[in-house]
């Protein structure tokens, strides 16, 4: 769409300098985040990341790579080079549906899905937010729900996400929700486990251990 707009404005005005943003298209080496690759490799438990041969098998195996702004192969290379902001702002990280096709096919045994998880964690904790991608909102809401109740309740979860991101979707999916509800397949009840206290304690002691490790 942008391109057609651009062409249109060119037809009207030959000196349409105001719409063409002049931007440097390369990055100099001192602008890269050199520690990024180590951080991600540690977080994804894979030094194997360094051994990528850039064959592109992952991108070929990926069912959603043609929607991504950088394919998985590029992402791996960009992580190694230290393009931190580009990687964490990319749609790739949130489009990954965790189908593990790349992980199975990779000839070097890199666990690419786990790298994506590491990038997701990094993006959320670093405050990188992709405004068009409710996937990150889904992840954080799911997390808080399980944290509090021990179980995930699909109805309230979806309602919350749609209200937070795109209320139009709620309207669009109302009929589907109704159909499901009539067949007893969805409810607005919040599910929870009996022993909520023990679960909280469990997660708390996990936190404590992490703090102890940091100190």
């Amino acid at each position: 769409m942008d391109r057609s707009k651009l062409a249109e404005s060119f037809a009207l005005d030959n000196t349409a300098t105001d719409i063409i943003e002049i931007k440097r298209r390369i990055k100099y080496e001192n602008e890269l985040d050199k520690g990024f690759r180590k951080k991600i490799a540690e977080s994804a438990h894979g030094e194997k990341l360094y051994g990528c041969i850039q064959c592109g098998t992952c991108s070929a195996a990926c069912p959603v790579s043609h929607y991504m702004d950088y394919t998985p192969r590029k992402i791996i290379q960009m992580v190694r080079e230290g393009f931190k902001t580009e990687v964490l702002n990319s749609s790739t990280v949130w489009l990954c549906a965790s189908c593990y096709a790349c992980t199975v096919e990779c000839p070097k045994g890199i666990k690419i899905t786990d790298v994506m998880y590491a990038l997701k964690r990094e993006a959320i904790s670093g405050g990188y937010k992709h405004k068009n991608f409710p996937a990150s909102v889904l992840a954080s809401n799911f997390f808080s729900q399980v944290l509090n109740n021990g179980r995930n309740s699909e109805g309230p979860l979806l309602l919350k996400i749609y209200l937070k991101t795109n209320p139009f979707m709620l309207f669009k999916n109302m009929m589907l929700g109704f159909k499901l509800w009539r067949r007893g397949r969805i409810s607005m009840k919040t599910e929870h486990i009996k022993d909520k206290k023990a679960l909280k304690k469990l997660l708390q002691s996990m936190d404590n251990m992490k703090e102890a490790a940091v100190i």
């Binding site: 965790s98 997701k120 959320i124 990150s136 992840a139 997390f143 995930n152 022993d195």
Partner: peptide, 16 residues
């Protein structure tokens, strides 16, 4: 008294 397995979402926030 089982709890949620965490699915794909939990892994994206906190692995431990």
């Amino acid at each position: 008294d089982w709890n949620c397995c965490g699915a794909t979402a939990y892994m994206a926030i906190d692995e431990d």
